[in-house]
Amino acid sequence: MIETVHLRKEFGTKVAVHDLNLTVPLGRVTGLLGLNGAGKTTTIKILATLLRQTSGTVSVGGLDPVRQPRAVRRRINLIAGGERMVYARMTGRENLWYFGQLYDVPGRVLRPRVAELLDLVGLAEAADTRVERYSRGMAQRLSIARGLVNDPDYLLLDEPTLGLDAPIARDLRRVVAALAERGKGVLLTSHYLAEVEQLCAHVYVIGDGRHLAEGTPAELVAQSGCHRTVRVAVVELTPRVEAAARAFAPAVRIAPGGVVELSGPGDVAGALTSTIIEAGGALKGLEIAEPTLEDAILALNDRPAAVIA
């Protein structure tokens, strides 16, 4: 597994990563979340040997990226979304062949693997077309295949679906889940929190380079203190209904159009609707929204680190 202990990275006077302890085991997808500038990309680049930590230790499958960078590089790969990062003048197949040479993948292994990867990212038909004729999404899919060309034990994914069309992003998520099932260790950062919720067994939340929280997505939601929200839409918001709702709980919000909204712990939907009906209100709709990971991340980021610790 990948393990960091007291990881710290400074750029001049700016501290990008503070004392981060992180574990990425084989066989599952681990999430790394935080707002922009939280230190996610810096952390990933340290694990990828592209940056060197200021202090703390990193171990990748028992190897030290500082002392054994080449051995580490053979076992990992990095896929960053949003950028092309492939050679425009070469075809898709040639690009994969080129990177296969850099990773010293034996020819008899490389040939079928390239074909398989092109198939996997849906570029089999465009394999022998130059990348300069690819659409943005095609080039990005190729760069995903490029990240798998050395069959890495650990895959670092930095916003891999950024800018991808929805069906392609869905396919990529399937691939990532399958890789973890096959025993790979995957570290994923993404802006699409639904993606993280769907894929990640364990999630780290960082803010300003500090560890804020960790756990399964459900645990994070629970830790964040976010509650489900009940929205009751009434046909006509009479003063009596409004007074009854406010009396039910002071935290009730009355939204325009006659929607009574209440967030809180426990199951309040039944009691709230009963109260409104008893006050003579007629129900038009009822919605119960579970708190999402997004709510949790925003809530965690708003809290000072000391409170969470």
Partner: peptide
């Protein structure tokens, strides 16, 4: 600028050979 330099440095290939 195209980002491929970073990929060269991500690979285990010997830099001098590259």
């Amino acid at each position: 600028q195209t980002g491929t330099l970073e990929l060269l440095f991500l690979s285990p290939a010997n830099r001098l050979v590259v």
